[in-house]
């Protein structure tokens, strides 16, 4: 097992490469998901505010989710 992690003496280079790739790809995904959630909440709040302000006009704006 330790032989596997040593990777023929190049362990730090190889595991370093894999670790930084995993971290970057997961971080990008998480940042995107968080941004998406925040924008969805903000949009829904704005839609609710505007809807309460002008009850007549909001039929068109309802379609997007």
């Amino acid at each position: 097992m330790s032989e596997f992690f040593a990777m023929g003496g190049y362990g730090s280079y190889i595991w370093g490469s894999y670790a930084i790739t995993a971290i970057a790809m997961i971080a990008l995904l998480v940042a995107t998901l968080r941004g998406l959630r925040a924008s969805r909440i903000e949009r829904q709040q704005l839609e609710a505010v505007l809807q309460s302000r002008r009850p007549r006009k909001n039929k068109k704006a309802d379609k997007t989710s």
């Binding site: 995904l29 995107t32 998406l36 924008s39 969805r40 903000e42 997007t64």
Partner: peptide, 12 residues
Amino acid sequence: LRVRLELNERRI
């Protein structure tokens, strides 16, 4: 996911 994010921001 990012296109959805961008669409939300444009709507906002």
